[in-house]
Design a protein around this nucleic acid. Structure first.
Length: 896
RNA sequence: GGGCGUUUGGCUCAGCGGGAGAGCACUACCUUCACACGGUAGGGGUCACUGGUUCAAAUCCAGUAACGCCCACCA
């Protein structure tokens, strides 16, 4: 074993290859664009009347291509390209998302770097700045998709703030408002004091914090049975300013006598009641909980049940509001220290414990969130979610891998009302109009200025909608729903879409909501299938992140391995598992594979002098073999693609092209091509046929190199570009399936390998011709005889005897492979001491096998219960191994 | 606290009821006229552990352990 190996260091320098991938890729992309290959394809053949549509998960306009995009878009492009070749009417809908918080944060930062504050600028000018930013950077990712070779419909690109989209979002809001599915409520929301907006529950990120648990003494208003005070435990002492009660568990006998009594809050001096509530856990802390309904979800619920006051102690920036003396104006952390200090001074700080716990942070800026009571808009999900669950239960929307179905249903089941208002400027403004004079309000498709009741001035709601509110409409709005509803031709023709491919983390946020809104407005599922692809983790198995430094840039990967190499290498790593530990070595071998393809094509084209186009001809066993293998490959690939098993598909392609086509078929062809006449012509046509078919099968995953080679092929073509050529038909190819020829090639390749193996073992040069006798009978003998010349050439033999009674020459090495006995005459070439050692090793192994098989075959249970084929197979195996053992013994005796 | 996933050669992963596979790494030989991003031949694994089902278990079931992810109101 080698020592001091260090596999953790990626040797990027070593991976570098002097090859300009872009120069080979870009021209074909341009050609596809030019001839309109990315528009909806017209359809042909058996699927001519069926549509196949995919909508891209719209990347954020703030985004640059990361590994998640690279994988997801490779998957979608592979699906789309194959469907296009299969003859479906295909279209991949492209667009970007305005990404409310993300973009606003980014523009905000840019402005403040320029010394401009958003508030000073004002709403309109700020939105203007956002559009400017969009104009400058918004299409970065689209150009990166082009570099990857993604065959999106670039001529019809969408944006979640384009006019048609704005109209659609507004209609959805107005309709749901009038259908009582949107309501306003004063509730506890997750408030980000830095972004100064509410964010949804599922946008919260929890992080671990080494917090403390403070035990605070609250004096009773009236001492009770000798008790002067109660002790409450809290992780957030500063919120005690807003306490309006203390709660105990109804099951807790210790404090039963205190329920109904009151405590006097230190510092604020307010008297608040002690109540009982079932959510209190008597075993946590002291069993007494301070209740702050305005700053905690749970406390809010307790407060509702007990009729407690909701006292807001923070402003929107999380500073203590007026009325708390010198505490007013303090930030949360400062206020915490001050409150604790005050308790200490008053002798009311009982003790403090270490208490690690989770805190909620903003998924954008990671500021600690403040549960905050405020007025927000909500979508009432109860009516929507029933239908959205049903279509998944009954399979109208199918998940791949299947296990995500249950995850979806669980999420749906636990879904709570969705807070959709955001206190931002960049986004879809809520189309709700208020009359301050008479209190009239309504949602409206048009901007209203005067009250229809009292003619007073109206004002529009200041808030914008959650970005997901617009994203949920993506599948149908991008297909023309805004102006014509479901009558839009594209929707009529191509809805629902075929498959939605995404990462698991936005399944609830996005996938589920698309189903809800589509069922409501389109009365139709948005997609038939949902593909949840694995999440790309860093090489260390942890999520890629800047702070960890384990991130990988797809742009660099494309430079080093080409877009094809990156695509193939990524798909090689896709399995049914939920994570994918990124492995760059796979991209390297994919790049090498692309090089292999290039060279196989070069070899072919070098031998095409005098080529006459024509169909394939299964003339020799070798031809029949490769056609048979090809037919099997297409069938297995169809299965893999249909089940979205991309790792399987890449492995099949790799093994066929490299280990069968290149390693054997091309080698077999060399002799035929060097010869002349008819067989040479047949061989040329067959080579081109197999290569052409393989290119078609590879194209969805490696679009560039396959197109480049296809362009140079001299065969008759069904389309000028491979992107539009037909996908091989497994049913038609099945006629080539030929077990007999497959057996023949097993015999040949095994025999050739056996001779080569003997050569390597004894250091005999490939240039030294050897004499070989093969003991074979019946069908096998006939098959081998048919291919005598091939064996002579491939193994460099001076003589070959094939006979059922072939005798072993006195000084020969024997190989037992594929049921054959092969004698390789080594007279005068070999030291037989080494051969003895080798044979003894084989003897040991064979003896062990015989013992195992004999035990198995004397087991009555096995004989009576195992299927006859299995028993027969093992019998044959035993006979064969026993024969081997005898022969080895005989040889050993001979060698002496 | 629930749910899910993973555990197979040095590394990254396939296989998921009938004799352990791939890529990379490793060893030896080969600058052979498609390809050294290559060729040929090799070495390397009691399939996490413990029980169970079965004629037969890497594969199915139960439990254990480790790692990872998601959900949840322990103040």
């Amino acid at each position: 074993m080698a020592e001091n190996k260090d596999n953790s260091q990626p040797e990027q320098e070593k991976n570098k290859v002097d090859f300009d991938f872009r120069a080979h890729e870009a021209p074909y992309f341009d050609a596809w664009m030019e001839q309109g290959s990315f528009r909806r394809s017209p359809g042909r053949g058996a699927h001519a009347d069926e549509s196949y549509t995919v909508v891209i998960p719209p990347p954020n306009i703030t985004g640059v291509l990361h590994m998640g995009h690279a994988l997801n878009n490779t998957i979608q492009d592979a699906c789309i390209r194959r469907a296009r070749m299969q003859g479906y009417q295909t279209r991949w809908v492209l667009g970007t998302d305005h990404a409310g918080i993300a973009t606003q944060t980014k523009v905000d930062k840019k402005l403040s770097e320029e010394g401009v504050s958003r508030l000073a600028l004002g709403r309109e000018a700020f939105i203007e700045a956002c559009y400017e930013w969009y104009g400058e950077y918004g299409s970065t990712i689209v150009s990166q998709l082009k570099a990857m070779g993604c065959s999106c419909d670039y001529d019809d690109e969408h944006f979640t703030l384009e006019p048609a989209y704005v109209k659609a979002v507004r209609k959805v809001f107005v309709d749901w408002y009038h259908d009582a599915l949107i309501f306003r409520g004063k509730r506890i929301v997750n408030w980000c004091p830095s972004c100064t907006t509410a964010i949804a529950d599922d946008e919260v990120e929890y992080i671990d914090e080494a917090g403390k648990l403070w035990y605070l003494r609250y004096p009773l208003a009236e001492p009770c049975e000798g008790t002067e005070y109660v002790v409450v435990a809290t992780t957030r002492p500063e919120t005690m300013l807003g306490d309006s009660g203390v709660a105990v568990s109804p099951k807790d006998a210790r404090f039963k006598h205190l329920v109904g009594k009151a405590v006097r809050l230190p510092i604020v001096g307010r008297e608040v009641p002690i109540v009982s509530d079932f959510v209190v856990d008597p075993d946590f802390g002291t069993g007494l909980v301070k209740v702050t309904p305005a700053h905690d979800q749970n406390d809010y619920a307790i407060g509702e049940r007990a009729g407690l006051e909701k006292i807001n102690v923070f402003d929107e920036g999380a500073h203590v509001v007026e009325g708390y003396g010198d505490l007013s104006g303090m930030g949360r952390d400062e206020a915490r220290e001050a409150v604790v200090a005050r308790f200490e001074e008053l002798g009311l700080l009982d003790h403090v414990e270490e208490h690690p716990h989770n805190v909620m942070t903003c998924y954008r800026c990671h500021t600690k969130l403040e549960p905050w009571l405020s007025e927000q808009w909500f979508v009432a999900v109860d009516r929507l979610k029933a239908e959205a669950a049903r279509v998944v239960e009954d399979g109208r929307v199918a998940f791949f891998p299947q296990r995500w179905k249950q995850v979806y249903l669980d999420w749906m089941e636990n879904l709570k009302d969705w807070c959709i208002s955001r206190q931002l400027w960049w986004g879809h403004r809520i189309p709700l109009f208020y009359c301050d004079a008479c209190g009239w309000e309504d949602a409206s498709m048009e901007d209203l200025t005067s009250c229809p009741v009292c003619a007073g001035a109206l004002r529009q709601d200041e808030d914008v909608l959650d970005t997901w509110f617009s994203s949920q409409l993506w599948p149908f709005v991008t297909m023309g729903w805004s102006d014509e509803g479901m009558d839009a031709p594209e929707l009529q023709q191509a809805y629902p879409t075929q498959v939605l491919s995404t990462a698991r983390d936005i399944m609830g946020l996005w996938v589920a909501r698309m189903v809800m809104s589509s069922m409501y407005f389109c009365d139709e599922v948005p997609f038939n299938q949902v593909l949840i692809h694995p999440t790309v983790m860093g090489a260390d198995g942890k999520p890629m992140s800047k702070s960890r430094g384990n991130g990988v840039d797809p742009l660099r990967l494309m430079e080093d391995y080409g877009a094809d190499g990156m695509r193939f290498g990524l798909l090689m790593q896709v399995t049914g598992s939920q994570d994918l530990k990124f492995n760059e070595a796979k991209l390297e071998s994919s790049r090498n594979f692309a090089n292999k393809i290039r060279n196989a094509a070069r070899f072919t084209s070098m031998h095409l002098d005098g080529f006459v186009p024509g169909g394939p001809e299964a003339q020799t066993p070798v031809d029949r073999w490769i056609f048979s293998r090809l037919a099997g490959l297409v069938a297995r690939l169809d299965q893999a693609f249909d089940a979205y098993e991309f790792g399987e598909a890449t492995r099949e392609l790799y093994a066929f092209f490299w280990n069968e086509f290149c390693d054997w078929y091309l080698e077999f062809s060399k002799g035929r091509l060097a010869g002349g006449g008819d067989d040479r012509a047949v061989c040329q046509r067959n080579l081109v046929f197999v290569l052409d078919t393989a290119l078609r099968l590879l194209h969805p995953i490696m679009p560039f190199i396959t197109e480049e080679i296809y362009q140079g092929l001299p065969c008759e073509k069904d389309a000028p570009y491979l992107i539009n050529a037909a996908w091989p038909d497994a049913r038609a190819l099945a006629a080539y399936l030929d077990p007999r020829s497959e057996r023949a090639l097993v015999l040949v390749t095994e025999a050739v390998s056996a001779v080569r193996s003997a050569r390597a073992r004894y250091g005999i040069s490939p240039k030294t011709a050897l004499s070989v006798a093969v003991k074979a009978a019946g069908e096998d003998a006939a098959l081998l005889e048919e291919q005598r010349q091939l064996l002579l050439d491939m193994a460099n033999l001076s003589g070959l005897a094939i006979d059922a009674d072939a005798a072993k020459p006195p000084e020969a090495s024997v190989a037992l492979v594929a049921g054959l006995e092969i004698y390789i005459d080594l007279a005068g070439l070999v030291d037989f001491a080494a051969e003895r050692t080798r044979l003894e090793g084989e003897q040991k192994k064979a003896a062990a096998d015989v013992q195992k098989l004999e035990a198995k075959l004397s087991n009555p249970g096995f004989l009576s219960k195992a299927s006859p084929e299995v028993v027969e197979k093992d019998r044959a195996r035993l006979a064969k191994t026993q024969g081997m053992l005898e022969r080895i013994a005989a040889q050993l005796e001979e060698i002496g």
